[in-house]
Nucleic acid binder design. Structure first.
Lengths: 301, 301
DNA sequence: GTCTCCTATGCTCCTAGTGAGTATAAGTGG
DNA sequence: CCACTTATACTCACTAGGAGCATAGGAGAC
């Protein structure tokens, strides 16, 4: 049984609207799925171009910022295939807009990973379901020091701090423990989140973790915002991605003194309070600071 | 011409000895090459296991710490192949030791990327050859604002700071400008560095950039050290990777007060001066701090 | 108008961390 | 005992970050 290799291209396309980070997904037989297409060795000169063309075809969207995320290739990650399926996954950022093709829709990321959103305090499901579930799992498979350490570090148990960037570690731990079930459309209550096709939820987890890390040292957050924005809009997007509330005054101080933005003089009056100045991203910061990012005051660094 | 896909696995295996970061390489027809082997869909359950088995076969080395780096898949990156070659590249860390197989040797990374080593001041080749070369290239292809920005940011020209982590950006810029020539064993003088087979030098550049970033927020540097070490040894390894000198007293303060190491009480007397205490990595730091890394005092952060 | 309730924005205070350097300790080889 | 090496403790100034107070300028209720 000499199997051939098929190379798939997947995109985790992220946008933030109404203070919710969202991912563009299509409907498939296996459930909610990321835009996908196989690499065509003849047509696609590069992997990224192949990805862009598949996304265009399936969602009508022309991608802007794109970066490679990870390549998944375990044999058992998808069942029932005759070929060996490898998937190269990309992260794309953009502003949400209506998508021409009807079956492509923007879904809130935290529907799939509800334990990652701490903006309204610690999600109750962590103490109610996930932590007990992990404990049960450890009883079942053996309470090794290594497993205890992983649980503590990933979920901030036993005095460890919560680290927003460990999204993937948390997902993989829950997966191992059988607390998130994939490939079964209606599996899991609200606690363990909505599932996706195949291992697409793992891809979303990878993307969120990477994005949370990256906004701190590269100005990628501006890919998610219009050309002009108020500082509160910027903060809301940062909070949506970080999944945590930030200290307002200090956030402003950081982005302004850090030279990331510059005022335009124009005012936004639809704020519901005092009008806010509109700002724009300051390109020159790239030449001035080695690692310009937004900084997340109020988070454990 | 419907081409099939071949999936290659490459390893950038890094160790530090004699204050030099080194990469394990084998000799091939095209020149110095990274350990390589195609994925066997039947034998290799995961990509990482496939990689480990190829490295074992080609170098006799059993890998420890391994992480996925990047997947290269451009059509034109290798010429003369009938199939489309994709390469999934992994970064591996270890302590250097004699390698059973004779044609696998440890080569200094800075032989391939000499402009990355600033430990003895700014490498002269930057001002002598690379910067002028980039200028010429821009004259030739057009001096767009975007190109000027890339040059300035990557190489710290026109007042921009040098950012040690932008290894890949620098390499790609030099490659575009024709200042590093691959696939020609004797190309380039000392200035542009020794070349490697195919696009393997790009892989090494990717690995070095990732590693420089990672030691700051994950304690991976200890993978490169013996179980016990003096603080100066630790510092020398950090310097070797960062390609820069660090402030000694502040470096010690950072790793000690950061809880990354703990003294063993034992002394190392072969220092040539006052004996130094031997330290070991402190596992518990993982539970205490969200992003424990060594910190590089003296570098622009 | 004026009161209340928004959000925006400026400023202060305190603490922890970082950059840079001085001083002292404890070995080695002559 | 000397010069020289490396180790380690400590100081000082400065900056960045956490937390909160105070004021500014709009909208809507009355």
């Amino acid at each position: 049984m000499s199997r051939s290799i098929v190379l798939g291209l997947n995109a985790v396309i992220v946008a933030v609207t109404d203070e919710q980070p969202r991912v563009l997904a299509v409907d498939s037989e296996e459930g909610v799925a990321l835009p996908y297409g196989p690499l065509d060795p003849n047509r696609h000169r590069t992997l990224e171009l192949g990805l862009r063309s598949w996304v265009r075809e399936q969602t009508g969207l022309e991608l802007g910022y794109v970066e490679q995320l990870y390549t998944f290739g375990d044999r058992d990650r998808v069942s029932g295939h005759d070929e060996r399926l490898l998937s190269v996954v990309y992260l794309a950022l953009g502003r949400e807009r209506s998508v021409p093709l009807a079956d492509a829709t923007w879904r809130p990321i935290y529907d799939f990973l509800p334990w990652e959103d701490w903006r309204n305090g610690k999600p109750g499901s962590i103490d109610r379901q996930l932590a007990p579930g992990l404990r049960e799992w450890m009883e079942r498979v053996g309470r090794t020091a290594d497993r205890r350490q992983r649980c503590a570090v990933s979920f901030g148990l036993r005095g460890a701090p919560w680290d927003g960037e460990r999204v993937l570690e948390r997902f993989e731990l829950l997966y191992e423990a059988g607390l998130v079930l994939e490939s079964s459309p209606n599996a899991g209550g609200k606690s363990s989140g909505r599932s996706m096709a195949l291992d697409h939820r793992r891809m979303v987890a990878t993307a969120l973790g990477r994005l949370r890390g990256k906004i701190r040292y590269r100005p990628v957050i501006f890919e998610l915002l219009p050309a002009q924005f108020t500082l509160l809009q910027l903060q809301r997007v940062a909070e949506a991605l970080a999944g945590a509330r930030l200290h307002k005054q200090n956030f402003r101080r950081l982005v302004q003194r850090g030279g990331l933005v510059e005022g335009t003089g124009a005012l936004e009056t639809e704020t519901g309070g005092r009008p806010a100045e509109l700002f724009r991203f300051r390109q020159e910061v790239l030449r001035e600071r080695p690692a310009p990012g937004v900084g997340l005051p109020g988070l454990a660094s």
